[in-house]
Nucleic acid binder design. Sequence first.
DNA 1: TTTTTATGGTTCAAATTTGGTCTGAACAAA
DNA 2: TTTGTTCAGACCAAATTTGAACCATAAAAA
Lengths: 227, 227
Amino acid sequence: MNDTLQVTSGSAGVFNKIRDSIVNGRYSYNERLPSERDLATRYKAARGTIRSALEQLEQASMVRRKFGSGTFVTYKNDFDHEDIAEETSPLELIEARLAIEPYIVKLVVLNANNRDLNRLEQALEQANNTDHDPEAFSQADEAFHLMLATCSQNPLLIWIYQRINDIRSHNQWSARKANILTPLKIRAYNEQHRQLLEAIRHRDQIEASDIISSHLKQARQDITGVG
Amino acid sequence: MNDTLQVTSGSAGVFNKIRDSIVNGRYSYNERLPSERDLATRYKAARGTIRSALEQLEQASMVRRKFGSGTFVTYKNDFDHEDIAEETSPLELIEARLAIEPYIVKLVVLNANNRDLNRLEQALEQANNTDHDPEAFSQADEAFHLMLATCSQNPLLIWIYQRINDIRSHNQWSARKANILTPLKIRAYNEQHRQLLEAIRHRDQIEASDIISSHLKQARQDITGVG
DNA sequence: TTTTTATGGTTCAAATTTGGTCTGAACAAA
DNA sequence: TTTGTTCAGACCAAATTTGAACCATAAAAA
């Protein structure tokens, strides 16, 4: 017939079936797929065939495979695409964060207790193990900054930051992550996070606020390609 | 035993199930989850697996765990802004505005064109004729500050400020407006607005940012009754 | 107040699960 | 033939799960 006809056999067939299951929501974001051996019996194929299909899915950035752990869906279905997410450019997003986060950090310095600091430390370490995985770092980075907002103890600011994060994950910038987030960049960002947490630990409002400001300005430069 | 629909297993599966229970309202905001040992029997998993899932939920800022007390839902459904409006105190609202408005003003100084300045002038004059009407001034004041956000030209910041204004008009502070907004206070606020607009006209970023900061700090004082 | 109870926090080792790798045979298409 | 794919099985290495015990805290009960 024509080239739109789907292949239904072999690894290409398995690839198509799993891909459809993902885009149709049968397997949703962050969900773990059945094990390769399990998939093999389901699709009545050899494990090697399944692995070949999973490699293609990974190549297509739809899943991420973790040694000894499983295969996880990284594809996001845009159900709740709010208009505002469409209208906001990566640069405008950074500007908004530049507006709100330095003040959030000041509040964190004032309000954070030891438990909050431990949670920030955890979030930071999550991000520290992602040198070579832009997608993983991006997720951990979102979680770290949201945790900062959470530690401000201000429900309105937390709510606002949740909205920012929603937009962040639907933003056009997502497409360029892989280009911008080199291992070197990721390490630099992680180092800035570390410095920020130290400043918070020392209850140094001005230092902490300055660090988050330059952190975001750095990100702005990296996005615009200036510098 | 896996012929039928297979849900994700392990801690990832428990995480998904509990997360869904939370977003679907099965466990609602501030509610305490069953104990870890209880969840372990419910989900037929070891306590360690449950703890792993709860750690993921905590990292996602959906629950908060209290030593010796329990695990509590911190996730809020963002569908109705009424909730966040009810949970936000007048002080927290001012704090959020203090976070965002100074930066908005800086952007206005950078981006505002003559047409924007005229719009601000109009909004300001609207507020100038309301010396003896707290309700009218309050509305005009909201409009003026929203116009500032609009002049920042950043759609995300505009959207955020619209949400802030929504909350502002639903906030508990409304009840105390009549007490706080004396004619004297209204004139003082209007004067500060005037100075702000002048600073914007002179493209003085620092001056404009300082004025809006002290303007809001003044409002914070008036609310808390300090000073 | 003191005591008790329930809860989350921690540690440990064994068992299990999972993705990663390799081999060789069977099969189909060029 | 040659080439590429699929299949089936085995083993490796990493991560998770399990089950149990014990600790520290907070709230309830006495």
